[in-house]
Write a protein that binds this DNA or RNA. Structure first.
Length: 607
DNA sequence: GTAGGGTTAG
């Protein structure tokens, strides 16, 4: 948008022409009214800002270059303009140019807070630290804007939260932005507890809250799954009248989706007086995994409120389709993203890779992946998971190496992907090498999920004893997922000496997992220990739980048919059995004999 | 005339 001040100016046409030369920016003589800008320099700066607002950074630069005198305001406007267009490196170059060429101009607090934003955007803490030293040199550390920008830079750049904390401590008079920035820093780092610790301190110091602080605090409590804390904050929001703030309510909606439940979330959604596209996106994302049909239903209703789906909407919608694994629907949604010009958005392309892989079309995943102009760690991970699930573990591992070569820094989740790929391809030693490099090269601390992957990697290959030793050597207590992976390995390789131990650990840690009882009982049965078998089965019945049925589905022409093992319902079931029989014959032909031993013992609960 | 924090992706 063109600022009103400019449009009102008599020298400018109602629509700004591009590349308006500096020489045209003369002080107005015809309409010498008091509200008009006074000097060409001020006018030029105004125009520079407008150019950036319209994304015309080249025109901004041309005008800037034509200025005979550039003061600190013009320089700062350029630096901040570039960052506002996400051109952080250009902003940084501008700052360097300013220090080098404009010896008569001194950077001020505006310059520093803008260039710090550029450092944050480049994720380059070394530049940020350099600016930090200049901030001290120029004596502007006392500016609350500079202090907050420094904190934000450190909090966002890798491993900088401690530096952010020490800057925070040094700010004598902190304001709500300082607190919010620190809370956001912890939250984005995934340290919800750290964030809530700061939030609590803020409450103790009786700092006035505002919607910004409240929404990030809600996100922090959602990230640790604390519905108690989340509900407390919801009550506080209600008390302070923040429910009129859409971002605050969106955070609450997200918290309900993640920690409380979808039906409650839906009630929250219906209770909202005002909703925006993020509101809808949040709910669609909430439904995406557990009820993708409802997610699609919401998507089709969204335009009734005159809202336009954006890249986030499509990311969740595509993920929903991926979870439904209905290729034709996926192709339709893919078409919509093309029509709306969103197909090249990073997040959208990433979810398309995942969707095509989950719908069985790995070729399309590849095509999208290869045609992407820029890829991030999510793109690589999605492609690797796709390859892995299609049995191309070698390609997935290969991709990991290519990713590292291309300069993308691996994160924790990409290690989950590469370890899984190694595990399913039998690349055990290769996988162990990656696991080792995770800490030694990339300084990422392995968590329960990673240990689970490595236990699975060793266990699948029959190296059960090593898997057990790894669990023993873990720096923290293994949770039920790690023991679950171990149990799976013991079961697969019939290492009964460890089964009891593994199963009892899983049961201790998560008694609600009925699958564990089943696994344990199967092993007892296979060992002929019928007394133990009966005892476990009795426990299982006492729980009133059933093994969760794995649902399968198939798309034939325009219909989706779904079924579970042992299904006797539905008119299509007979055809399913026919197909299963054909599969059985094919498998026999290639010499596969099924492992009936453990199957038999599972038959009695109908799954 | 130049600067700030919040909600939705593997």
């Amino acid at each position: 948008m063109i600022s009103r001040k400019l449009v009102q100016h008599p020298l400018l046409p109602s629509k700004i022409r591009h590349s308006l030369p500096y020489s045209k920016l003369k002080s107005p003589t015809l309409f010498n009214t008091p509200f008009l800008p006074k000097s060409p320099s001020i006018l030029a700066t105004n125009l520079i800002k407008s150019y950036f607002e319209m994304g015309l950074f080249k025109d901004a630069r041309t005008l800037f270059d034509e200025m005979p005198q550039r003061d600190v305001v013009a320089w700062s406007a350029m630096i901040s303009g570039y960052t506002s267009c996400n051109l952080h490196a250009r902003a940084w170059i501008m700052f360097r140019e300013m220090l080098r060429d404009a010896t008569d101009v001194q950077p001020n607090e505006f310059t520093f807070s803008s260039v710090l934003k550029a450092c944050k955007g480049m994720n380059t803490v070394s530049c940020g630290a350099l600016v930090h030293s200049l901030v001290v040199k120029y004596g502007v550390l006392g500016s609350i804007y500079v202090g907050n920008a420094l904190m934000e830079m450190y909090a966002t750049c890798s491993d900088g939260i401690e530096n952010a904390c020490s800057v925070f401590e040094e700010i004598v008079v902190k304001n709500a932005v300082s607190w919010t920035t620190l809370i956001a820093g912890y939250t984005h780092l995934g340290d919800g507890k750290g964030a809530l610790r700061v939030f609590r301190q803020m409450l103790l110091e009786e700092v006035e809250l505002n919607p910004f602080t409240v929404s990030i605090a809600i996100r922090a409590s959602a990230s640790i799954g604390s519905h108690i804390y989340g509900k407390q904050i919801h009550a506080a929001v209600f008390k302070r009248g923040y429910e009129s703030s859409i971002p605050v309510m969106n955070s609450i909606l997200d918290m309900y989706c993640k920690c409380i439940g979808l039906s409650e979330a839906y009630r929250c959604f219906q209770g909202m007086v005002e909703r925006d596209i993020i509101t809808w996106n949040t709910l669609i994302a909430g439904y995406e995994k557990s009820d993708p049909y409802e997610a699609l239903n919401l998507y089709s209703n969204l335009e009734s409120e005159d809202l336009t789906p954006n890249r986030f909407t499509f990311t969740s919608v595509i993920a929903s389709v991926a979870n439904m694994a209905v290729l034709r629907l996926g192709e339709q949604v893919h078409g919509s993203t093309i029509k709306r010009g969103l197909v090249d958005e990073l997040g959208v392309a990433n979810s398309l890779i995942d969707m095509y892989a989950k719908c069985g079309n790995i070729t399309n995943s590849c095509k999208i992946f290869n045609e992407m102009e820029s890829k991030n760690v999510v793109s690589w991970t999605s492609m690797m998971i796709g390859y892995g699930s299609h049995g191309h573990g070698d390609e997935a591992v290969d991709l990991f190496n290519k990713m590292v070569t291309s300069g993308v820094k691996p994160d924790r989740i990409v290690f989950v992907a590469v370890l899984n790929a190694c595990s399913h391809t039998g690349l055990v030693d290769e996988g162990l090498k990656y696991f080792e490099s995770m800490t030694s090269v990339y300084k990422i601390k392995p968590d329960q999920e990673i240990y689970g992957c490595v236990v699975d990697l060793l266990g699948r290959a029959g190296r059960v004893k090593e898997a057990y030793e790894l669990i023993e050597a873990m720096p923290f207590m293994a949770d039920e997922s790690v023991w679950g992976a171990f149990l799976g390995a013991c079961k697969a390789h019939k290492v009964s000496e460890f089964v009891k131990l593994a199963a009892s650990r899983v049961l201790e840690l998560k008694p609600s997992v009925s699958g564990t009882y089943l696994a344990l009982s199967s092993i007892y049965a296979a060992d002929g220990k019928w007394g133990d078998f009966a005892r476990i089965r009795k426990l299982l019945r006492g729980m009133g739980s059933k093994k969760e049925a794995g649902r399968s589905w198939i798309e034939v022409r325009d219909r989706i048919y779904s079924f579970v093992a042992g299904d006797k319902l539905g008119s299509h079931i007979e055809s399913v059995y026919e197909v299963v029989d054909i599969f059985g014959l094919h498998m026999k032909e290639v010499g596969y004999s099924s492992d009936l031993e453990s199957l038999i013992h599972n038959l009695d609960d109908g799954t």
